[in-house]
């Protein structure tokens, strides 16, 4: 473990808590893409199946349960509890165009061709594009509430911090995982225009307006 990965995991946890808290407090999921949340739940479910087969540390096990529980809780709030506030009209990204190519790529490019490893690889590829429905929804509505942009900033920062972790681990342990690194760079690049808008606008108290 290193400071980059620890702060990355914390940024990830903070993002999830910001979102859950926002939906719970405002009793509304307006402006939130349920599709992205479904993709995240799929990412954690396929990635953390190794909870039953391998133990890394109490921290690792605890965080996996937290990410699984919070992602399903978020889906429950969006599609069950506050479904009346779910914005069907703007959450229209075709997620099958993200799931199927990720699965196909995982079957073609992986470290080992076995069930858990292919699912892990699928979760890595899917996570890199899982935010697209949310970014698409923000661009369609043309704006995002500031709390949603804080959520996106924390979520985008988590994988950016993981890139620093991968550099650190390569420099100190000679450890690297090219699949995770390439997907992580793609994932972080997808946030770049948002990061720019967040830093130039939201931090100056303006509303986040994405070019529609």
């Amino acid at each position: 473990m290193n400071i980059f990965r620890l702060t990355g995991d914390l940024a990830h946890l903070i993002a999830i808590i910001i979102l859950l808290h926002k939906i719970w407090k405002s009793r509304s999921c307006a402006g939130i893409s349920g599709k992205s949340q479904v993709l995240f739940a799929l990412v954690y479910t396929t990635r953390y199946l190794d909870l039953v087969t391998s133990y890394v540390s109490i921290y690792n096990t605890f965080m996996k349960f937290v990410f699984l529980a919070t992602s399903y809780a978020t889906i429950y709030l969006i599609y069950v509890k506050f479904k009346a506030t779910y914005d069907h009209n703007h959450d229209t990204f075709r997620i099958e165009f993200l799931i199927l190519p990720s699965l196909a790529l995982a079957l073609l490019i992986n470290h080992y061709f076995n069930f858990l490893e292919v699912l892990w690889t699928f979760s890595i590829y899917l996570e890199s594009v899982a935010i697209l429905p949310q970014l698409f929804m923000v661009s369609k509505t043309g704006e995002a509430e500031s709390i949603t942009s804080h959520y996106l900033f924390a979520l985008g920062s988590y994988r950016a911090l993981y890139i620093l972790n991968w550099i650190y681990r390569y420099a100190t342990e000679g450890h690297y995982d090219l699949i995770a690194i390439v997907a992580g760079v793609v994932q972080t690049v997808l946030y770049c225009d948002f990061f720019y808008l967040y830093i130039t606008k939201v931090l100056k108290g303006k509303k986040l307006q994405l070019p529609a």
Binding site: R5, D9, D50, V56, M63, K64, Y162, D177
Partner: peptide, 10 residues
């Protein structure tokens, strides 16, 4: 390469 075939990152 992997840490003994398991992934040690979240």
């Amino acid at each position: 390469g992997h840490l003994g075939g398991t992934h040690d990152e979240l």
